[in-house]
Design a protein around this nucleic acid. Structure first.
Lengths: 234, 234
DNA sequence: CGATCGCTTGATTCCGATCAACAGGAGTGG
DNA sequence: CCACTCCTGTTGATCGGAATCAAGCGATCG
């Protein structure tokens, strides 16, 4: 092991310094879904490629929703080894914490626009409206379910199986049929699946040779045989 | 890879068939902590060693709290490869789901007594008392934080580092100073850390030779050099 | 007492990591 | 436009850490 892959990567330490002020909270408003509530309370912010949105260990003052672009979250070891916890695409919410401390860092994968909402406002709203409280809880539970699947992948799957799981996950989210446009690099995929870029590249080539997928460009992958991938996904 | 370790293990398929009836809910009661609330609503049930408490995919009708013994949760692949998600000791709560479906299976590690509480009663209570809602949310968030750490361990750590993380985690929970009494087998530890029993055994021996730990018996481990283990934990 | 189970240790194999080279673009500046 | 560099991704050769295969030991139990 001991992959110092992430060590020399540029990781700009630019945090949110001047956050936007949240609008007034609809205190007596009737039951609204969390998604709708966020639109009313949030402000859009731009983040350029590789810019840090928040860092591990920082107080969590805001909740975030991707409007455009893509975001990754990760944990680091001392020597730079990195594990990515998840990728967030437009419509996805990330960065919510119960106790107000971020457990992972978040960065923009590409130039992105992100809706930012004050956490304290949401928590206060949750105390008054049980449906908001439930939505926040459900959001955390979805993150948990995702990580339970990733745990199985990282602990017990082969390289082929990891890539199959990743491709099926991304295809399931993009909703663009059998073609997947990846916003992230091979390094990001590797750090998500607990592999190296070389193994990711080799395994994709191998899947292409087995005609399970095809690779029109390096960032575009077509699922040619979903059944084969699903079989690998156990 | 491809460890069929779990394939031939006996995994009795005995589920909770006749659950206990929950007591009346303190509907208008003032703010109580979740732990105290559970005592009032639950019923104690015995589970013998290796008995299944619930299975992955089953509807989640109950929430559980360990009174005596120990519990593990896990996911399985088709061919029997197993990944353990966590260990639960006396006082720990497990098995709560927002949407009512268990994402992992749960089994008693040793003969255990478990407090069982109706989920529907708790969810109803949470809708009325925001502090209960918050406690349930916080519980899910604690599970999430635990899995985020496990994710880093499974994705990026060496065998030595995994064992160090495991020993520090268990020592931190047992609160019995530097001595840790493990309720689980080497196979359980291996399936938690994404290793094999042989690697777990060898690595523990190696840590003993490096005088980081000592092994009075196979189930009892004394942390002799916490600094060394913490260094490995990065 | 023999049998089973949990654990340790040794020998060997193998999958993915590491080291290394190179190719194709994208952007930059002349 | 080309020459240049930087960046990302692919491929080849080799290495190494953990898996696999195998044997044996002590404890528990019927």
């Amino acid at each position: 092991m001991l992959m110092h892959a992430a060590t020399q990567r540029q990781l700009p330490r630019i945090s949110v310094t001047r956050p936007p002020n949240a609008n007034g909270v609809p205190a007596t408003g009737s039951a609204e879904s969390l998604t709708e509530t966020l639109e009313l309370m949030g402000a859009a912010m731009p983040f350029s490629r590789n810019m840090e949105i928040y860092g591990e260990g920082e107080p969590a003052e805001y909740l975030y929703k991707v409007i455009r672009g893509a975001v990754r979250t990760h944990k680091l070891l001392n020597d730079g080894r990195r594990q990515i916890g998840g990728f967030y695409l437009p419509g996805d919410i990330f960065g919510m914490e119960v106790d107000g401390i971020h457990r992972l860092s978040a960065e923009a994968i590409s130039d992105s626009k992100v809706l930012v909402v004050k956490r304290s406002a949401l928590v206060a709203l949750a105390a008054k409206q049980s449906d908001v409280a439930r939505d926040l809880w459900a959001m955390t539970a979805r993150e948990l379910a995702h990580l339970q699947n990733l745990m199985l992948t990282l602990g017990r799957k082969t390289a082929q199986e990891r890539l199959a799981a990743f491709l099926l996950e991304m295809a399931g989210r993009a909703c663009s049929g059998d073609a997947v446009d990846l916003p992230m690099s091979r390094q990001d995929i590797a750090d998500y699946l607990g592999l190296t870029i070389e193994t990711v590249s080799r395994t994709l080539t191998q899947l292409e040779n087995d005609s399970a997928i095809s690779l029109p460009t390096s960032r575009r992958i077509v699922l040619r045989d979903r059944a084969a991938l699903t079989r690998l996904n156990s």
